[in-house]
Write a protein that binds this DNA or RNA. Structure first.
Length: 361
DNA sequence: GATCCGTGGCC
DNA sequence: TGGCCAAGGAT
């Protein structure tokens, strides 16, 4: 069914959330602001994004400023947000837009840019350029699954939900305010039509909603069961120099935590092929330690990634002043914390325990 | 279609 | 505690 768009827009006019990247009512949003926020919001909640968004905008007021910045600085500002390919693509996209002199104003044109896919292209087109299109994110999938009582599990139901969602735009009232309509869908999904305990009683679309009629809103959309997360183990070494710097490597530019810095140590092995902890430690000290030292156990860090759990044992040592310990470059170089690009997992690894810690920065 | 790719909050 | 989920994209 196609619900009444004017009911949703009326609700939105009274319950609209104020967000840093949103234009004031009746105003046109800045495409740069919309794009930057949408990239950050991919798989990331609003409250996490807000401080990052503010820092980015303060440092890079325009897309050209972002394009001209060194990638290292972009990554540093991004550090902690996760999915670091987004930062790489963000930078590449800024440079492409800089060359084009402006953001493309069509869904197809936007989608040719790095980091902009089916969802983000439509979000920018609708919000920044007022083009009548429905961006289908997790919110819109959930709303659509409930309106139509679609019981097929995600992700297989995705094409069906996208097709159904596109019909939300059939209502001329939606096409009259594409930017507001898209954002109204997000606000509805974030507040009333939430994943758990949806507030159907006050929903502007309660009357036509099949899931509500069948009392199954909370159970939708169904999802395919995810397979269990394996555990990987590693031993990492925290070497502090007399100035309080820490020995850090640069990770390869692509792949897991691409472009961030990390502590030297063993590979992050699968638990299957992992020898006993004692054996792993022995191998670590002889094969992977950056130097021979009296290693002190600084503790364990557990970190959950999207597709595996990491258990890290940290061993630390502090190099005495006026001494010379040659360290092969493959183990990294000494850096102050503020010079480093630190993922959340590495921040944990640097802070655990109370000895052999780098100076705060 | 399936997999890889972070992080933090919630119950 | 552990599983779930969030304004997805690239390969």
């Amino acid at each position: 069914m196609t619900p009444d768009a004017s009911l949703l827009l009326h609700w939105y006019d009274h319950h609209r959330r104020t967000l840093p990247w949103r234009a004031a009512p009746g105003q046109q949003a800045d495409p740069y602001h919309v794009w930057l926020s949408e990239i950050m919001l991919q798989q990331t909640v609003v409250q996490t994004v807000i401080p990052y968004y503010q820092r980015f905008l303060a440092r890079f007021p325009t897309v050209d400023a972002l394009a001209e910045a060194p990638q290292e600085e972009v990554l540093q500002l991004w550090a902690g947000l996760g999915y670091y390919a987004r930062a790489r693509n963000l930078h590449a996209c800024a440079q492409a837009v800089h060359k084009l002199r402006a953001f493309p104003r069509t869904v197809e044109g936007l989608q040719t840019l790095p980091g902009i896919g089916a969802y983000t292209s439509r979000a920018i087109a609708a919000i920044a350029f007022n083009i009548p299109t429905v961006p289908v994110d997790g919110n819109v999938e959930r709303i659509t699954a409930r309106l139509n009582a679609v019981e097929d599990p995600l992700p297989a139901a995705r094409p069906l939900l996208a097709r159904l969602a596109s019909h939300l735009n059939d209502d001329p009232a939606a096409q009259a305010r594409p930017s507001d309509f898209a954002q109204a869908l997000f606000d509805l999904g974030a507040s009333l039509c939430s994943p758990r305990s949806p507030s159907c009683l006050t929903c502007p679309w309660r009357d036509g909603c099949l899931a509500r009629a069948r009392n199954m809103a909370e159970a939708l959309p169904a999802r395919q069961k995810k397979k269990a997360r394996p555990t990987r183990h590693a031993i990492l070494f925290r070497v502090i120099d007399p100035e309080g710097r820490v020995l850090l490597r640069s990770r390869p530019p692509e792949g897991l935590l691409g472009g961030t810095d990390d502590l030297p140590g063993t590979p992050w092995s699968e638990s299957q092929s992992t020898p006993s902890p004692a054996r792993l430690a022995e191998t670590a000290f002889t094969r992977y330690a950056p130097l021979q030292a009296q290693w002190e156990d600084c503790g364990e860090v557990k970190h959950i990634f999207s597709h595996f759990t990491l258990l890290v044992r940290i061993y630390g040592c502090t190099i005495p002043a006026q001494s010379n310990y040659p360290i092969p470059p493959k183990h990294g170089r000494f850096r102050f914390l503020k010079e480093a690009v630190l993922s959340s997992v590495m921040k944990k690894c640097l802070l655990v325990g109370d000895r052999h810690r780098p100076v705060p920065g």
